[in-house]
């Protein structure tokens, strides 16, 4: 649905220095998925999402939304395309002088919808986000979570193909964040809407993203389905999610191995079975269990009293049982 190839954005500061906010970024967001871009501030996430609807013009590279090359559109064509791309913002960007209903009506007004059709569509959207009783309120009278729900209703008004979310939950408290994420997930499922979001909050990726890209210093370090990346040994995402286990040394004749369990395997007693089958004791040093959407993912750091070929045999057995492993240190 969104295909970004080799995107570069270079800013020139007033004193003439050049800053590469995006440095050869390529991404593919599939139709109907929630794709998260995570990274620290200054990683280029914001430039990336703003390049997609050309709020910022990229220096070079290609952006295709639903097969249309955005960078080559003329003014009127670009405006028509933008109507197909909803966007929500960290600070909501609601129009203060307009009521909730008038805010939601804005994209329809500028698209020239007839009044009666707008009225019906607005009612539908307020129902969807649960703000029917606030139709006549002004944004200043709403809580943060309510404001973002208005933002979402407004972004969905013109029935877009894609929703861009620019740190939409970063200004909200944890409880409200959960509500907004649940709403985004529901919209994604019920309307089949493709969502591209940028965030610096790992909870957001864990809670709703199907795929993720990790960005740093204008580059994509890695991208792929969240579960796969999280359970891939040595991945940046895995490291961001789970504690780092550097500096531990195994006792002689043992090896330190990090095990990752994703999905069903996380719920099975794999470790004790392997221990029994190989007639050894497994020492568990550290561990964490987490959930991505509804999929459990666990990671354990274990000490196996095996080295060399005997270790290889255990590792092969773990692989056969669907456990991903990484040898952290050999004794």
């Amino acid at each position: 649905m969104i295909r970004i190839e080799n995107l570069t954005k270079v800013y020139t500061t007033p004193d003439g220095r050049q800053i590469r906010a995006l440095d050869g970024v390529s991404l593919h967001v599939r139709r109907g998925e929630i794709f998260g871009v995570i990274g620290p501030s200054g990683a280029g996430k914001s430039s990336l999402i703003r390049c997609i609807n050309l709020l910022e013009r990229p220096t070079s590279g290609s952006i295709q939304v639903d097969g249309k090359e955005m960078t080559r559109l003329s003014g009127p064509e670009l405006r028509r395309e933008r109507r197909q791309i909803g966007m929500i913002f960290q600070h909501f960007n609601l129009f203060w002088s307009r009521t909730v209903a008038e805010n939601v009506a804005f994209p329809l007004e500028i698209a020239g919808w007839p009044r009666e059709k707008i009225r019906r569509r607005v009612a539908e959207l307020l129902e969807l986000v649960g703000l029917t009783d606030k139709a006549k309120a002004y944004p200043a009278q709403l809580s943060g979570g309510q404001k973002q729900r208005v933002g979402i209703a407004r972004a969905l008004a013109a029935e877009p193909k894609v929703l861009l979310s620019d740190e939409a939950t970063s200004a909200l408290d944890p409880e409200t964040t959960d509500q907004i994420l649940a709403l985004l997930r529901r919209i994604n499922r019920e309307l089949g809407l493709t969502i591209l979001l940028i965030t610096h909050q790992m909870e957001v990726v864990k809670a709703i993203c199907d795929s993720v890209a990790v960005m740093s210093q204008g580059r994509v370090l890695e991208a792929g389905p969240v579960l796969e990346l999280a359970s891939r040994p040595g991945s940046h995402l895995g490291r961001m999610l789970l504690p780092s286990w550097n500096g531990l040394t195994p006792s002689p004749g043992s090896s330190l191995v990090a095990l990752t369990f994703a999905g069903q395997v996380a719920l099975e007693p794999v470790v004790t079975r392997v221990a029994r089958d190989h007639g050894m004791d497994i020492n568990i040093l550290a561990g964490e269990l987490d959930a991505f959407g509804s999929v459990p993912v666990g990671r354990l750091l274990v000490e196996l009293p095996r080295v060399g070929e005997e270790l290889q045999a255990v590792l092969a057995d773990l692989s056969a049982r669907g456990v991903r492993w990484e040898v952290v240190a050999r004794g």
Partner: peptide, 12 residues
């Protein structure tokens, strides 16, 4: 941000 939101919605 309001101007940007309007532009993102396709406003002239």
């Amino acid at each position: 941000g309001l101007i940007e939101a309007a532009l993102a919605m396709g406003a002239t």
